[in-house]
Amino acid sequence: MTVAVSAWRQVRGRVDQQADFGAGHRWLELRVTAELEPPDPGQFIQLLIPSHASGAFLPRPMSVASVRPLRDGLMLGFLYVPIGVGTHALAALPAGAEVEALGPLGRGFPLDRPGTPVLVAGGRGVAPLLFAAESLARLGRRFELLFGARDRAHLVGLDEARRRVAGRGRLHLSTDDGSAGIKGTVVEALDRLSPRPDHPMVIHACGPHAMLAAVARWAAERRVTAWVAMESVMACGTGVCRGCPLARSARGRAAFGSQPPSLLGNRDYAMCCTEGPVFDSRDLDWERIE
């Protein structure tokens, strides 16, 4: 029943640089002070955009896409799509602008599980998986990276992905229109990876909801474990406001018993920010999650 002692901090950060990354995406490098613990792949940061620069009021959750140690802190990389008031304001911040960072938050991908890690990325969902690929490569682990998008132009971060798999993993591309890799979805790309009974695969996925639901189905049919990075609207990001519930499946309820650590949620709902954002896909009720 013990909950890991929270290690997050809110620290000052400065935009080091920002650039267009293709197909409307942005890559942000944020320099943060040393009090921030290095995040793990799949964990996220609450970015507080200065109020004079934005109509956004609450911080915005963002997955960490890369981490580089600096002498006096960390350089965090984020890959994001400006879609609304907060992310547009973020995109307009020049180098040197201050952005407070709260994190690292949540629980990341359990990359240490036995089996071959199969990273499945859809669109901007590639962000935390770039970080996962980098970690696996650094550990000398072999892995597969499946990356799918609408078309070639939307395979944003493809060069990054290539660099990270070099030598250690294999990259499998898929596009809806066949302009890169196989024509079809990442799930069809998954079909082509024949699971080897002697060496089970463990899926780590991030992408649009429909993709994650399809991956969850695929994995359930084949008795493969799939870890999925979920999103929810959030306020605090730390388990306090109870604003980010995701419905548990019957298995999820049983797995947690009747009294899950309260920071993580309750019997019916898991909190996306503390128990997630990465979940075992079987523990969520996909019918009840939009």
């Binding site: 609450l58 609207v233 109870r242 980010c244 519930p245 419905a247 019997r267 709902y269």
Partner: peptide
Amino acid sequence: AGNPPQRIAETAGGMLN
């Protein structure tokens, strides 16, 4: 257990919960 999602929505200078 609380209400089903969506439980919060940002509004100008505030939030609904």
